[in-house]
């Protein structure tokens, strides 16, 4: 029974991924990808990792919606109204991906998976938290801060107008020089 459900979810995941390239509409492609991710998340839920599975659903939905915004903004034909073909190097790509898939599958079946050692923890969420935070607290904190500063730096580099454009050379303008004001007024 479990195996049947897992198989169905696997088919859904792979099918969703394939549909991303088949459908014309970018909006539909995004949400096919979301369906694929959710299928994978449900599979993880079925292995008993409740927190990981739920967090994957949460994050993927938010990410796919934001990705939809960018897809619509940058891609041609976002509604699929024009039957446009957007494939390049179809045969080569199919060959490479087929080979890769075969290789990975072979690896999965031929790898020497270890046997289960010890007991399943009563609360996998706490166990996960402790694993991440206890021995590797410093790493996690540094990672977090690094990620955050990368994001901030990227945005600062990407934006066309900086603080000095908005607030004057002395950063002391009464109001920020923006075309549309924000709520705080700066």
């Amino acid at each position: 029974m479990t195996l049947a459900v897992l198989l169905a979810l696997g088919v859904l995941a792979v099918g969703g991924g394939v549909l991303v390239f088949v459908v014309d509409s970018m909006a539909r492609a995004t949400f096919c990808l979301l369906a694929s991710f959710i299928a994978v998340a449900v599979m993880i839920l079925m292995t008993g990792l409740a927190y990981l599975g739920t967090v994957i659903i949460l994050m993927m939905i938010i990410e796919m919606v934001i990705m939809a915004v960018f897809m619509i903004m940058y891609m041609m034909n976002p509604a699929g109204l024009m039957p446009m073909s957007m494939f390049h190097n179809t045969r080569g790509a199919a060959l490479i991906s087929g080979l890769l898939f075969a290789g990975l599958t072979a690896g999965i079946f031929l790898a020497d998976w270890p046997e289960k050692r010890g007991e399943r923890p009563k609360d996998p969420t706490t166990a996960l938290g402790e694993t991440l935070m206890e021995g590797h607290m410093l790493t996690m904190m540094t990672l977090g801060v690094t990620l955050f500063s990368t994001i901030v730096a990227t945005v600062v580099l990407a934006t066309g107008r900086g603080r000095y454009d908005r607030l004057g050379d002395g950063l002391d303008a009464a109001h920020a020089d923006d075309p549309a004001g924000g709520g705080v007024g700066r």
Binding site: A27, F31, L34, A50, Y51, T54, V55, I57, L58, I61, I62, M64, V65, A68, D123, T125
Partner: peptide, 24 residues
């Protein structure tokens, strides 16, 4: 659920997708 809080969060972000889809 043992992760009830996160579950609630995950279900309410479906609204993001839902309203965007209905608008689109």
């Amino acid at each position: 659920l043992s992760v009830g809080v996160v579950w609630f969060n995950a279900m309410e972000v479906v609204a993001w997708a839902a309203v965007w889809l209905v608008g689109w």
